[in-house]
Write a protein that binds this DNA or RNA. Structure first.
Length: 460
RNA sequence: GUAGGUAUAGCUCAGUUGGUUAGAGCAUCGGUUUGUGGUACCGAGGGUCGUCGGUUCGAGCCCGAUUACUUACCCCA
């Protein structure tokens, strides 16, 4: 049998893990620094917990888990009926599937908050670093299994949380030496636009179309909108929105003119302005903060600020971080008035960008931390060396004894070389008699006889 | 869902207008070197050419179908 792994999943080599951990550690460092506490939730959730939270598209991308032991069921007729129905259209039936793999970390977090509300002190700041699964068609920068690094604060309406998150993103990307543009928008502005032109129910079509402005141009966007059933006068009213450009402040002024009659819209503008002002005071180290009214984000649960980060380097055009504010995600689970805001770092895409642009420090291109390998000549030598290995390890020196005692020396040296182990120690009968160690520097090729003291000294 | 590309050794890939026994590099193993790697030289093993069917005297190559992988659009981290 030829081995393979499911499409959209990957194995990670020691070198890749070294690089991934470099990103994980950096993100974790700032999560802790900003006061977030770590939690974990199960890989699978009840299907009912997940459905309806991500919009139609998201629901289609859920990896559902087929119920087990269906062959033992006493309701095989019902099973068969449901199965046939599900061949006709997408449907979720408990009798066929009642669990699914998590699609993101935000909804499971909302579920967690409701379930553990008595133990939580609000506002609650949590972080979570775990894989999520989406039944998407894989392509560049898109995987079916990938890690998200989420930081959310829930139980606070303050816009200072948004400010904190922008600073956090800037800190992380500055530390990673990855030039990034943080795009910010607000769902209330989008609602305002839809309200003003009198097509509140077409808000998604409108934002999707606006999003394509720089890709396909004004004319094509208008064409697409009229195909979606937008009236000509609505499109006329929408035209000023297409013209919005300039600095962040200029954009907001233009928006104010357009949305002055919309209460929600004006509120959205004000929210963005407050965040911009605060960031203006604080300053960002390397990232650029940009108001982008075309930023829509499909996830249904966002109600306020929306964030999306793109790398300024590399060939990946998709976002490497996303997030926003959700006012009532816990409501559906029975806990009202719990506004939350959060962001999610997409570590796999960050990895791709950094690898592409050669942003990893040289020092982590090594897979092993082993400093010294002892050559293994045979059983006698092996037994003689073992206590020294233990001693070195007690001194915090990472070392190993070549495990097989019947392999030729060139084989053993080859192993040390491939693993990039910097020192090899040779102990045979001669060295045992003289109580010395023959130590070879694999980089320079130099070789010398030392006693135990000398060995420890060189290794430290 | 729509549209392209690819499939040949463990890996990365050559393979001419269809013609004898399908090749290379890397990797593996052995040797030059039984106590010395990274360099060099010599040698060995490893293939139902993704699968099924068709055209042909003859198919890795041409045609059809199918599966897997991959890229773009949509959407997303």
């Amino acid at each position: 049998m030829k081995p393979s792994i499911p499409r959209g999943t990957r194995d990670f080599s020691p070198v890749e893990m070294q690089k991934r951990n470099y990103i994980f550690d950096t993100i974790k460092k700032y999560f802790n620094l900003y006061g977030f506490e770590q939690i974990e939730t199960p890989a699978m959730e009840n299907l009912s917990t997940l459905t309806g939270k991500y919009g139609e598209e998201g629901d289609q991308l859920l990896f559902k888990i087929l119920n087990s032991r269906m062959h033992e069921s006493s309701k095989k007729e019902d099973l068969l009926k449901e199965f046939n129905l599900s061949l006709e259209s997408s449907r979720n039936t408990d009798i066929l599937t009642e669990r699914a793999l998590r699609y993101d970390l935000t909804v499971p977090f909302a579920r967690y908050v409701v379930m553990h509300q008595n133990d939580i002190t609000f506002p609650f700041k949590r972080y979570q670093i775990q894989p999520v699964w989406r039944a998407d068609k894989p392509q560049k920068g898109r995987y079916r299994e990938f890690f998200q690094c989420d930081a959310d604060m829930i139980g606070s309406n303050s816009l200072m949380n948004e400010v904190d998150l922008v600073k956090l993103m800037d800190d992380v990307y500055t530390d990673l030496k990855l030039a990034a543009t943080i795009k910010i928008n607000n769902r209330k502005i989008l609602s305002g636009i839809a309200e003003i032109i009198g097509e509140a129910d077409k808000i998604i079509d409108i934002t999707v179309a606006i999003d394509k402005l720089d890709k396909i141009g004004v004319d094509n966007v208008i064409k697409e909108l009229s195909e979606k059933g937008l009236s000509n006068e609505a499109i006329e009213k929408l035209k000023p929105v297409f013209e919005i450009s300039g600095s962040n402040e200029e954009k907001l002024v233009m928006l104010e003119n357009i949305l002055s009659a919309s209460e929600v819209g004006m509120k959205g503008i004000k929210e963005v302005a407050i965040v911009l002002d605060a960031i203006g005071e604080l300053g960002l180290s390397t990232s650029i903060l940009e108001v982008d009214i075309t930023l829509a984000r499909g996830l249904n649960y966002y109600t306020g600020a929306i964030f999306e980060v793109k790398a300024n380097v590399g060939s990946l055009s998709s976002s490497i971080t996303g997030g926003g504010r959700y006012d009532d995600l816990t409501g559906i689970f029975g806990l009202k008035n719990m506004s939350g805001v959060g962001i999610s770092f997409g570590i796999d895409r960050i990895f791709d960008v950094m690898n592409d642009a050669n942003l990893f420090p040289e020092s982590i291109n090594q897979s092993t931390s082993v400093k010294l390998m002892f050559v293994n000549f045979g059983e006698t030598e092996q037994n003689y060396i073992l206590p020294f290995v233990a001693k070195l390890r007690k001194e915090n020196i990472s070392c190993e004894l070549y495990p097989d005692n019947n392999k030729k020396l060139n084989k053993q040296f080859d192993y040390a070389d491939k693993k990039k182990i910097p020192f090899v120690c040779i102990v045979g009968s001669e060295e045992m008699n003289n109580k010395t160690f023959k130590l070879k520097n694999m980089q320079t090729g130099e070789q010398s006889d030392v006693n135990l003291e000398g060995l420890l000294k060189t290794m430290n």
